[in-house]
Simulated scan of single mutants.
Amino acid sequence: MKSQFTQVRNKKLLPDLRKEGVLDKDIVLTTKEKHGCPWGSRLFSHHTLASVRKLSFFHPFHVPQDSLDIVLAATYNHSTERFADCEDLYLQPETHGCDTWRRMRNTYDKAPPVFIPLGHPMKRGGIKERRSPHSVKLMNSGVHSSQTNPGYSRQAAGGAIFFY
Rank of each mutant, 00 (worst) to 15 (best):
E87I: 11
F83P: 01
K128N: 13
A74W: 05
L14Y: 09
W101I: 04
P150D: 09
R102K: 06
D85R: 08
E33N: 13
A84D: 04
L68W: 05
S79I: 06
K54V: 02
S67M: 09
V71E: 11
H78V: 07
L91Y: 01
H62V: 10
H78S: 10
E87W: 15
R154L: 12
T75W: 02
I116M: 11
D85C: 04
G125H: 11
A84R: 01
L14H: 08
S67N: 06
L43Y: 07
D69T: 05
E129I: 12
P15M: 06
Y164N: 11
A74R: 00
S146R: 12
R103F: 00
H46M: 02
L43D: 08
F163Q: 09
H47I: 02
T148Q: 09
V143Y: 00
A74L: 05
I70C: 08
N77S: 14
V28H: 12
H46D: 04
G125C: 10
G126Y: 11
T75F: 01
K128W: 05
V63D: 00
S41Q: 12
N106P: 00
H46V: 03
D26Q: 13
I127K: 15
T75G: 11
G36P: 00
T30Q: 15
Y76M: 09
S56R: 07
F115A: 11
D88L: 11
L14S: 08
P121F: 01
P93V: 04
T31S: 08
Q7L: 15
K110G: 05
S141R: 14
F61V: 04
P64G: 02
D66K: 04
S132A: 05
P113Y: 02
H134N: 12
Y76G: 01
V22M: 07
H35A: 12
M1T: 10
N77R: 11
H47W: 04
F163T: 08
L13T: 08
L13M: 13
Q65C: 07
Y164C: 01
P121Y: 00
E87Y: 14
K110I: 06
R18W: 04
L91R: 12
L14W: 08
I70E: 12
E33W: 07
M122C: 08
A160Q: 12
K32V: 14
